[in-house]
């Protein structure tokens, strides 16, 4: 357990060089732009998850560039702990980026005075679309992680774009569906009435993550460096 905690800390140290002032400025602009355009801090749930998805690959990139998989072996970090650590890192990263986006957007909206918003006036229905968007990005991460563990970052860079392309393709496919009451959108509409959208998303994501973790553990166990 201590090793796992240390490993997560090591992942943050590993990714640290990527978090430059330039990166911080760019993501801050994206966050503020999104907040002002939508007038909602809750849209940052989706933005935060998107940023988490973009940054999640950093420890993989750094590990490959700097021979860190050998380091992990010399530090007695079990391969299962490496995989578990990367998943927990992704979880914490998503939490961190969502929180950062949320706080920055709140501050931005407050100072700009663009929108006078009140937390109490925002109902669950206004949050749901952003939670669904965040869930989609986390779902993409669940697909990307086993790819990184299977082939390494350099080879996975191209493959990891595939889920994004599939998402965009899926979006346009849904736009062309004449009867929106059918298919997934219709299903979520019906689910929304029951107020079970968020719990359903959580259950689905947890399931996907477990499958993803199992695949990653299997792939990484066989990797040689």
């Amino acid at each position: 357990m201590t090793n796992l905690k240390n490993f997560i800390q090591l992942n943050f140290m590993t990714a640290k060089p990527y978090f430059t002032v330039k990166t911080l400025l760019i993501i801050s602009m994206v966050i503020l732009f999104q907040a002002i355009m939508t007038g909602s801090v809750f849209s940052e749930i989706g933005v935060g998850a998107l940023l988490g998805t973009l940054f999640m690959g950093y420890p993989f990139a750094s590990a490959e560039k700097n021979n860190l998989d050998t380091l992990y072996a010399t530090l007695s970090i079990k391969r299962k702990a490496v995989v578990a650590g990367r998943y927990l890192f992704a979880l914490l990263l998503n939490g961190g980026t969502i929180l950062f986006a949320f706080v920055l957007a709140s501050a931005g909206l407050y100072f700009v005075g663009a929108v006078g918003f009140s937390y109490s006036s925002i109902g669950v229905s206004q949050i749901e679309p952003w939670i669904m968007l965040a869930a989609m990005f986390i779902g993409i991460q669940a697909i990307q992680l086993p790819i990184y563990f299977k082939v390494g970052y350099a080879k996975a860079k191209f493959l990891s774009i595939v889920p994004f392309v599939a998402l965009i393709a899926g979006y346009f496919m849904f736009l062309n569906v004449s009867d929106v009451s059918a298919g997934p959108i219709g299903f979520f509409d019906k689910l929304a009435v029951t107020g079970l959208v968020v719990p359903a998303i959580v259950v689905v994501l947890v399931g996907i993550m477990f499958i993803s973790y199992g695949l990653s553990a299997g792939f990484y166990k066989k990797r040689e460096f």
Partner: peptide, 8 residues
């Protein structure tokens, strides 16, 4: 090949 992050 050293095993430490080059930018640290």
């Amino acid at each position: 090949i050293p095993m430490y992050v080059e930018d640290l």
